[in-house]
Design a protein around this nucleic acid. Structure first.
Lengths: 338, 338
DNA sequence: CATCGTGGTGAAAACCTTTTCTGCCAGGGG
DNA sequence: CCCCTGGCAGAAAAGGTTTTCACCACGATG
């Protein structure tokens, strides 16, 4: 019933039971060589019998390493935070690292607060994950531990950041559309003030120019990341150029809205208009009819890489700067029916 | 460039700078009364100047409290884990608690491993969150810290579990359909072997019986949680009873598929057929056309409650058993157009 | 026989903080 | 003048572990 919350067994208990000193017990438990095989066996058995579990706090106190990293997210662990989190968790999980989670919910004050408590807990490093690819203020100023930024880069070039290569991602999308024979390609994307929207537009235009083409409609259509905007933009695009044969959308949400509106107007996807989305947000991209060809930012890989990098940085100093991680193409029916 | 990773300032440094002993410094920093106001001020100033930050490890070592809880999830921090996580994070965030995240990925071995490391780190408590509402094996046997289970209850009735009240949720859904004048109501839901599917079917039938009605089609249609199944089931339901005027679906995915198929057959939602979903998974329920009326399990509240309960349990012993948390209804166009 | 390793063991320091207990001093009451 | 009290400061122990250094015995070497 009322479990007596008994004191945990310490190395002293083990040593006593094995009839040795704590020093010897410690050496035996850690496989140090300066202990006789028979003694070592006795200690190990005692530890086993007592269910001994070394106190990580005490170990950390002397070693100065907590084998813990803080994950400071500024969005509410949203669409982008999760995969990064998973990747980091994955990279560390195998090794004995643990992740301390702090969700600042976009509040700078709260972020400072969390940063302080992370430092008080003596984490070995910190991963900062943002909610957009726009640069964010650095927290690394004079910090005693290494920091890496994931998804949202730091505005300080001295810092280490990992972001998806949106320019490259857009190029891949457009090149794919060209490969499947499309020539009149429009681009519908999110708000102008998002770095992600700008980058993707740049990549789109670059890829088209390399093929000697220009954007259908003359320019990219900036709006919102929403399904609703996808629908609205469909009207605009089709009205402006009925001969359009492909659209690259800046998000799967936009693409889903676009596809809906296009089909309602009697145009077929992909036969009349091929569509490529962005994010590979499975619940949307795989379930839309037809399923969406889309750009995957490989956020889990990004998170894992960031974590591995942090891990390396905890030892020596690592290469600073913004690292752009390649995106990949996931082909589904909206560009190439089976 | 290469920040020298200098030793953190300790209370000894503060004491020296203030010209007092560490004991006095400690008392001043913790607002103990046995220290003269002027001395206290001197210490505080020294701490301020040195940017002193007490070492949480040392504090934990003596107090025996780490102000840390482990969050052990067995699904891959999926749809259900996240809100619970957020709720817990929220409940603790205000107080000085921190969350140590472990994702066992459904692997029992890994789970045991994580459990051991959490205990080695001397967490004050553990929250176990599952991926379905089916009971899962207890980990609490003879553990030195309190444990609460969220979403998936423990199979040991001695433990404390928080699960959504799916029976009640289904009743709310059906009562709402009755309120808006529907009488021929079908139920399409997930696989039979899911506790959630069973509970929701039970609640559906109960609510109908109380109104003197029976399920259209005679019984609930069990299938999968997918959109595809929603579409298939639509064929079955409409073929079986063309006069049907409402469907309660066991998930938003199912509801989305159902709505699609129904509209393709020329029936209007909600005019001809009203539809209620389950989960209030915003990306789906709010974006479907028409937006879905749906049952919200209030998972964030559930997570927060579990966390608060754990917090209480860390002090004294708390009431064991399975606590069913109420669901609520989110009304959108699929039952009541504006 | 004295000295030197050497393999194995234990005592003690170190990590950093809090708390308890002791001690000092001044002032007031007897 | 002595004793007690109260206010304040500091020394030391405790928390659990690892590491360094000292020690001991024993065999080998000179």
């Amino acid at each position: 019933m009322d479990s007596p919350r008994r004191r945990a067994t310490t190395i002293t208990d083990v040593a006593t039971r094995a009839g040795v000193s704590v020093a010897t017990a410690s050496k035996a438990l850690n496989g140090r060589s300066q202990v006789r095989a028979e003694t070592s066996r006795r200690v190990l058995r005692a530890a086993e019998e007592l269910g001994y579990q070394p106190n990580a706090l005490a170990q950390s106190l002397i070693s100065g390493q907590t084998r813990t990293v803080g994950l400071l997210t500024s969005d509410s662990v949203g669409r982008f935070g999760i995969p990064v989190l998973l990747g980091a968790e994955d990279a560390f999980g195998a090794g004995e690292m643990a992740v301390l989670l702090c969700d600042a919910r976009g509040d700078a004050i709260r972020e400072r607060h969390y940063l302080r408590t992370l430092l008080a807990r003596r984490v070995d490093g910190i991963i900062v994950v943002g909610e957009s690819t726009d640069p964010r203020p650095s927290i690394s100023l004079d910090l005693p531990v290494p920091v890496v930024y994931a998804y949202a880069p730091s505005d300080d070039p001295q810092d280490v950041s990992f972001v998806p290569d949106d320019v490259g991602g857009a190029r891949i999308a457009v090149q794919h559309l060209l490969t499947v024979g499309r020539r009149r390609i429009a681009h519908i994307t999110g708000p102008t003030h998002y770095r992600a929207a700008q980058d993707r537009a740049v990549g789109t235009i670059e890829a088209l120019e390399e093929a000697g083409l220009t954007l259908a409609g003359g320019q990219a259509l900036f709006g919102a990341w929403s399904r609703r905007w996808g629908r609205q933009a469909a009207e605009i695009v089709l009205a402006g150029d009925p001969e359009i044969d492909a659209v690259f959308c800046g998000s799967d949400q936009i693409a889903a809205g676009f596809v809906e509106a296009v089909r309602e107007r009697g145009r077929r996807v992909p036969d009349d208009v091929a569509v490529v989305g962005y994010d590979n947000w499975e619940v949307l991209s795989a379930e839309t009819r037809p399923p969406l060809t889309t750009i995957d930012m490989n956020l889990e890989v990004l998170g894992r890489t960031a974590a591995q990098h942090l891990f390396a940085a905890i030892g020596g100093r690592a290469a600073s700067g913004v690292h752009r991680m390649p995106c990949s193409l996931t082909i589904r029916d909206s560009t190439m029916p089976q």
